[in-house]
Design a protein around this nucleic acid. Structure first.
Lengths: 339, 339
DNA sequence: CCTGGTGTCTGAACCGAGTAAGCGGGCCTC
DNA sequence: GAGGCCCGCTTACTCGGTTCAGACACCAGG
């Protein structure tokens, strides 16, 4: 099956290639009568401009890139990224953009992909996830001049705009809630410590705990996997004075934590309260259902995509903080039973 | 930052553009001495050929497409697709291909994306998931002549090669195992009935149950979401004569089912055995851990990608059945307690 | 009637690669 | 020593768009 080109349309409509290009792109230079005629022919032939030719001629490739660098094992179960991607695509589709997805085995390769995409002219811009403090990607992207939006806290995004929300505020809400329920020994099973948003949460957790006079508010670092979450929970719950509440940095680890508590014969929520950061259907399905910090992850994606496309179009865009995650109380948190 | 072109390399190496192209592509036409020199210059300038120009000139775009048409809510929690994509990308990266990912809100739009990708020359080939019987995508792809590989059972893939395994065999293994444990009333919470692989599983389930003389082996259809899985389980377990074992078509619904059983005060595995199709870390984390039909999903992805790239290269490829999912017995299945 | 401006359209250059055709020069053969 | 051939490289054209300079018509103003 042969694909129609603008030359075909030009011939069919009795005009030149240039006129067709102007008509299709809504540019001035053709009368509305001929524009109509050209568009009609294009529509009849079911024409779509070859994106390679268009990109080569200096227009946009209409593709943006996204790389993920987490082990596939944790990526698979964490609903976060799929929801994020869903949101990103929603906005991209709306503006006829496509998404190039790349899983990178390591940070170096992730960087290499950005470089390659740039030099191959594959993408008009990129989204950056899982930012660390002093992340080399930021500098490289700034140097390349490739439009980019960071999905993460703004304080590590350099001159790049970022789409994120105030994790500190959400953490305060969670811990204050636990304190209000009477909990004094609150622990946290945190995410990958090197990630910038983990650091923000850790700091907020420590500060609010100190402010509320809670006992040693310890954060156990993990790699976000269920296994490491289970290990961390086991460690916390087998201490001489165990915590009465634990905040988990993702839903998978919270599920694991719930299971460990059950395994150790510790009743949830009677003896242990659990909060998961990032709500997901699983949190609702379990018994007891998990109290969670809920946020509209898809909305982040939509927002980030919109910002990126604006940046690609040359519009200066500012960082934007969406609404922070808020607490959704469910069955896994309860007032502390004073024995 | 300006990107180097072959013209830059040609000037630098003191040869013509043509020679550079031949050298870079490993084609004959240049002596090994100049080839070395050209490659050295290209390497020094960190050159990567513009993919748009290359694709326009008739070479490959080095991109393949994949569309997903499931509601984001179920996509998010189901590890299947992320693992599949991980596998696909592993192989694609190895051959310097990129993946264009597209989530489609509806089947019609999914089809429209394939059409557009084709006419825009964006992709060299596509992967097709979630095939239904009489799926219109198969016919369209055959008509367009766009290389494609179906990730699904071969009997609905038309002339397109397919990468899948024998679901019927795995289903037989699961039901025979339950029967061997003494179960006579086995039910199934199935996936989306229109999907081809669901139909295969349903048929196999019915047949093996009949062969083993099990009582009315009913399959309750769902949309794969945890909620619908919970509903289906509730329905099954509140019947006058309830099943003593249930096979779930995905892990999320199995988790939901476990929770419902708990909610109804039905002990797992003492009073009810549960098997999940598709293993995932969650299955291992829960208490009791879930007996599952395990398969290497990433391997499917690798395989499908390899087949697709072969098809893109013009090599005729045959459908391939990988190793079927096999049973991994865990804590959620047990011998039936005869009261 | 001439000039200037505007609107519409054409022609051609260009993007950065791939590739067929052509062309010297060295080597082998008779 | 002439003819033929292959190797190594260049030249020029191609892909399908975008875009700019210019041609032409038409109209208003002086």
């Amino acid at each position: 099956m042969k694909r129609p080109t603008i030359a075909d349309i030009a011939r069919e409509a009795g005009v030149s290639k240039g006129a067709v290009s102007y008509a299709l792109n809504g540019q001035p230079g053709v009368s509305s009568a001929t524009r109509e005629r050209i568009l009609a022919v294009a529509d009849r032939l079911n024409f779509h401009a070859d994106s390679n030719a268009r990109a080569l001629a200096g227009a946009k490739a209409r593709v943006v890139g996204l790389t993920l660098q987490r082990p596939p094992s944790t990526l698979g179960i964490e609903p976060f990224f799929m929801e994020l991607i869903s949101g990103v695509e929603l906005e991209l589709s709306r503006q006829s953009y496509a998404l190039l997805l790349q899983m990178a085995p390591s940070r170096d390769e992730e960087l290499a992909f950005y470089r390659r995409w740039f030099s191959e002219g594959r993408v008009d811009g990129v989204l950056v996830c899982d930012v660390r403090t002093g992340d080399p990607r930021i500098a490289v992207l700034e140097e390349l001049g490739l439009p980019a939006v960071v999905i993460g806290p703004p304080d590590v995004s350099g001159r790049l705009p970022s789409a994120w929300s105030d994790d500190a505020q959400s953490m305060v809400e969670a811990v204050e809630y636990l304190a209000a329920l009477g909990h004094r020994r609150v622990a946290r099973v945190g995410g990958i410590p090197e990630l910038a948003h983990t650091a923000i949460r850790t700091r907020a957790f420590t500060e609010v705990s100190a402010r509320l006079g809670l006992a040693e508010a310890v954060t156990v670092p993990t790699d976000y996997s269920g296994e490491s979450g289970a290990r961390a929970t086991r460690r916390l719950l087998t201490q001489p004075t165990r915590p009465t509440a634990i905040v988990y940095d993702n839903d998978v680890m919270a599920v694991a934590g719930l299971t460990v508590a059950h395994e150790l014969g510790i009743a949830v929520p009677a003896e242990l309260s659990i909060i998961a950061w990032d709500d997901s259907p699983i949190c609702r399905l379990l018994h007891p259902s998990l109290t969670a910090l809920t946020r509209d992850i898809g909305a982040y994606g939509v927002h980030a995509a919109r910002m990126l496309l604006a940046a690609v179009a040359g519009t200066p865009v500012a960082s934007d903080h969406g609404t922070p995650a808020h607490l959704t109380p469910r069955g896994s948190t309860a007032r502390l039973q004073t024995p």
